[in-house]
Design a protein around this nucleic acid. Structure first.
Lengths: 153, 153
DNA sequence: TATTGTTATACTCTATAACTATA
DNA sequence: TATAGTTATAGAGTATAACAATA
């Protein structure tokens, strides 16, 4: 509905956003924020934020991975990973074992409980894709992901 | 190069990220972070963070727009916009004028100086698109933006 | 000397509650 | 009663510097 009180200030849905919407970064960010919203709305039962999920999933699929590698892959800084891993460990979802060949490093492994939880979380996340991409056909979704990877990878 | 010291922990480029890379949110976020990096690397001369740029550009193209509308369009919270607008005003890039028909609201307008700066910033940002999307054809870039908008809009 | 992981800390971003002036 | 804008503040996220242990 139009706003008869305020001809000088355009309605929310009548704001000219064409320049911003012509930019890749703006559109990628808006999509990212939508996906995070959906994640937060539906993943509460697992007690994992998006970053926790990413880390836990990488540990599950890469047994023995180190903090350093997680930081490289996810673009995190080592100090910010310490507390995150400590929490996952205290919840009994992962264990840290001294690396057999590098005394400085610690290999990260999902416990049985961690494997069960993360697999369930992955299943749920995958099901949320349908919701996030509900306005896209299967082909469009595949194309979108392919093009995004082409940009940043 | 492979890491001969550490067979249990995969190299950075050999980490299995297939699950994460199958997710729209993960790929959108990675692309968004890349775009922000490029922005920060090249837009320093304008003294505008990404959010400042978005706000200033919307004011330029929507003279008389209110804080409330900016919040709606950009998904910001009113308290977080106050300081931002104060800074733009103190730099002489925008002015706030009492709204003629709503005593509560303030219309936002770009000054001449603001118009000049924001137009230059927009030109620069547009040129950075070529860099961000350098691995995409013109058609692919158009498709990517179209599909992103289809998801979040 | 360089790297892994850690601590402490600072900075930025985002969110909540409460207030004022006006509608 | 509801809304626009503001203040103060809390919480979450991200960043830098410095250290111990090991390579």
């Amino acid at each position: 509905m139009a706003n008869p009180r305020n001809p000088a200030a355009p309605e929310g849905d009548k704001v000219d956003t064409r320049l911003l919407e012509s930019l890749l970064g703006y559109n990628a960010r808006r999509t990212s924020l939508l996906a995070i919203d959906v994640f937060l709305q539906h993943m509460g039962e697992f007690g994992l934020r998006p970053v926790d999920f990413s880390v836990a999933s990488l540990i599950l699929h890469n047994p023995g991975i180190t903090s350093r590698q997680l930081c490289d892959v996810l673009g995190l800084l080592p100090p910010n990973l310490v507390g995150l891993l400590k929490d996952l460990e205290q919840r009994g979802l992962i264990v840290r074992r001294p690396h057999p060949l590098d005394g400085r490093a610690l290999g990260l492994y999902a416990t049985d409980e961690g494997q069960t939880l993360v697999r369930a979380a992955e299943k749920k996340v995958t099901s949320l894709e349908a919701q996030i991409a509900s306005r896209l056909s299967a082909d469009e979704r595949k194309t979108l992901i392919r093009l995004l990877k082409k940009v940043y990878l």
